[in-house]
Design a protein around this nucleic acid. Structure first.
Length: 319
DNA sequence: AAGGGGATCAACCGCGCCAGC
DNA sequence: TGCTGGCGCGGTTGATCCCCT
């Protein structure tokens, strides 16, 4: 007989989480930071085991999670990494920080496995960068790993250049942007545009995807936390508007204060990085000094975010 | 309109690792 | 050195959704 599950304890809830439970969990983590999962049921009165709390947070409530369908690029990355690493979903997820290992695992089992099975042996998978990779019988692992590193390096370089060009404008940091998903869109991250009312400029989803990514995640939590706030909104703020899944307009802001973070413990600071946005009916965003520096750090440090396991998704907070 | 079956995905389960004692 | 508890991970389950007949 195996040992009994921690969830088997009398009085423990099982099954789907209720919005009330989510609120309790998010509120607690907002205050104390993630980790020390065992103390959560005790301190919050949640009738959930520590594992369940951790899972709920990492797979669903954690900010920065990108939900919705996988892009072709993401799928190809997963396919290659699966070939390289096997079913080490956490390791694979570390290359796709916005996706959870559970998501990737599910997507692999439900879509990609079948997709690969349908491909005749030797069929090539198109990659957006023009490279072509043979499925199931590709180059050696070492070769592919090198190639992956090169691809990542190229992507970083392109991003770095893009940011260098845009730094002078710093549109999203200094100005009031309106960020809208098309009416009827079920995923704010998939078809969003961002416009700068002062310049009339509109950017595509690539440039501001971090916002939309966060929006899709915030959409889950913000609905639960309407009216809940810890700190008053900042005066110089960035307002982001999107439309919620039910078609109604949905606004949020993010606030980020670098100096205050220095006084926090490492664990708290990591959490602050992730969860800084105050989730309110209308949440406020300060000019994202910290997000940009995080991005810059990632750009400048080859190892940043690439070798960290699932528990250390410090780069999930991308802006 | 109803229901059957496949697809999807959130959540659970059990094992292994590791740090602290 | 062995034990214990906390946590992470991969595999699996089951509820719900969706499509087809």
């Amino acid at each position: 007989m195996g040992r009994s599950s921690c969830c088997d304890k009398i009085g423990r809830n099982k099954g789907p989480w209720t919005p009330e439970e989510d609120i309790i969990l998010v509120s607690y983590i907002q205050e104390h930071g993630p980790g020390n999962w065992g103390s959560i049921p005790t301190n919050t009165g949640l009738r959930r085991c520590s594992k369940s709390c951790r899972l709920r947070w990492t797979n669903y409530l954690r900010p920065g999670i990108k939900r919705g369908s996988f892009t072709e690029d993401e799928e190809n990355t997963i396919i290659h990494l699966q070939e390289l690493l096997g079913n080490r979903w956490a390791a694979i997820a570390s290359y796709l920080p916005q996706r959870t290992d559970n998501d990737i695992k599910n997507h692999w089992n439900t879509h990609l496995k079948k997709k690969l099975m349908r491909l005749p042996s030797g069929m090539e998978i198109d990659r957006p960068d023009g490279l072509r990779t043979r499925s199931r019988q590709s180059m050696s692992k070492g070769q592919w790993e090198k190639k992956l590193q090169t691809d990542i390096h190229k992507a970083k370089q392109a991003l770095y250049e893009a940011l260098s060009l845009d730094k002078s404008n710093h549109l999203f940091a200094r100005r009031n942007l309106t960020f809208e998903a098309p009416a009827g869109s079920t995923d704010a991250s998939s078809n969003s545009t961002c416009s700068d009312p002062s310049s009339g400029m509109t950017t595509g989803r690539g440039y501001l995807q971090p916002f939309s990514t966060y929006a899709s995640s915030v959409d889950n939590i913000a609905k639960l936390l309407q009216g809940w706030t810890k700190t008053p909104p900042s005066s110089s703020s960035l307002t982001v508007q999107t439309k919620s899944t039910d078609g109604g307009r949905f606004c949020f802001n993010l606030s980020n204060t670098v100096s205050s973070q220095k006084e926090l413990t490492e664990g708290q600071q990591e959490f602050q990085d992730e969860s800084k946005p105050n989730l309110q009916e209308m949440i406020e965003i300060d000019p994202p000094q910290c997000p940009l520096s995080l991005l810059e750090k990632w750009l400048l440090d080859d190892n940043y975010g690439l070798v960290q396991g699932r528990g250390d998704h410090k780069v999930t907070w991308l802006f």
